[in-house]
């Protein structure tokens, strides 16, 4: 199913706006995880500003779709989306990294409304997302106190889960053995309400991900673990939307879903792209910010 051009264009524009929000955060201390944030911005835009069930007025809504940012150092992209959704005012972007700020250096569930998982120690997010996906299934079976009113009407029609659980993984963190423990777990419990998105930007901190520790053949790996897998260009908004929609429609097939998004580290800012920058600091950072601001027209 191809998406209409108007929607794609609208989300592409939003995506650029999110990039600008990220630049504002990077300026606070002239520091930030620029490379991985830029590579995932398009996916985050598609998720938060179009695809998922999320109520900006009630970020704890029990039926909201869960999003676990397993590569939690790239939370700048999520913060940008939360500002765009109106959960936080734009001024909050300027408090990134600050003491007491809701925009902490790594995603933190208790500091930030709209964040489902406190990450930072890589390789754990998929387990958490799988746990929340499994909890959705358990709520259907066990009906804990209070569940009757909220959930029961939906049990009857099982066209859709109560909520879906999304997990954004970095390619480097696939080195962690626990990711594959979680992959087995999701397969065992038939978590068709779980969608993992791999930000495959090919670069880790020490060098090319596949040199640091080869993760290929990646598609075959997920397939071997019993997952439904698809590969997309992670900067093509149409492809992102199609993959997300398809994973929704596949609900009921008893398989967890994995979308491998081929991306570019530092995408959209040539200074960062060529340097494959992981954590940018000082002038390195500001040079990229100036370039980006010029390119995306400072549409704050």
């Amino acid at each position: 199913m191809a998406h209409n051009d108007a929607l794609v264009a609208e989300l592409e524009a939003k995506s650029n706006k999110l990039r600008n929000h990220c630049f504002t955060q990077f300026c606070t201390f002239e520091q930030g995880h620029a490379g991985g944030t830029m590579s995932i911005v398009d996916v985050v835009t598609a998720l938060y500003l179009h695809h998922i069930k999320f109520d900006a007025k009630d970020p704890d809504w029990p039926e909201r779709d869960r999003v676990v940012m397993s590569k939690a150092h790239c939370c700048e992209a999520i913060y940008a989306a939360l500002v765009e959704l109106g959960v936080y005012p734009e001024e909050t972007l300027g408090t990134y990294y600050c003491y007491g700020s809701p925009f902490q250096g790594h995603a933190d569930r208790w500091s930030t409304a709209g964040i489902d998982y406190s990450g930072g120690s890589l390789g754990q997010g998929l387990s958490f997302a799988a746990g929340m996906a499994y909890a959705e299934k358990l709520k259907m079976i066990l009906k804990p106190p209070g569940a009757e009113e909220t959930f029961l009407p939906r049990y009857i029609k099982r066209f859709d889960p109560l909520y879906r659980s999304y997990c954004i993984l970095g390619d480097g963190e696939l080195h962690e053995g626990q990711v594959w423990e979680a992959a087995m777990f999701a397969n065992k419990f038939k978590l068709d309400n779980l969608i993992a998105i791999v930000d495959y930007n090919k670069w880790s901190l020490d060098g090319p991900t596949n040199d640091v520790m080869p993760i290929e053949p990646l598609m075959d790996k997920w397939k071997a673990f019993g997952w439904w897998v698809t590969e997309i260009d992670g900067h093509d908004m149409g492809q992102i939307l199609d993959a997300l929609d398809l994973s929704n429609r596949m609900y009921g097939d008893n398989r967890p879903k994995c979308i491998i998004a081929h991306t570019v580290k530092g995408y959209g800012v040539s200074h960062w792209e060529t340097r494959r920058m992981h954590l940018g600091r000082g002038e390195e950072m500001m040079k990229g910010v100036r370039e980006g601001r010029e390119k995306y027209g400072d549409v704050r």
Partner: peptide, 12 residues
Amino acid sequence: QNGAVVAGALAA
């Protein structure tokens, strides 16, 4: 490791 994090999510 997976067990601990899954338990965390179930508690959440």
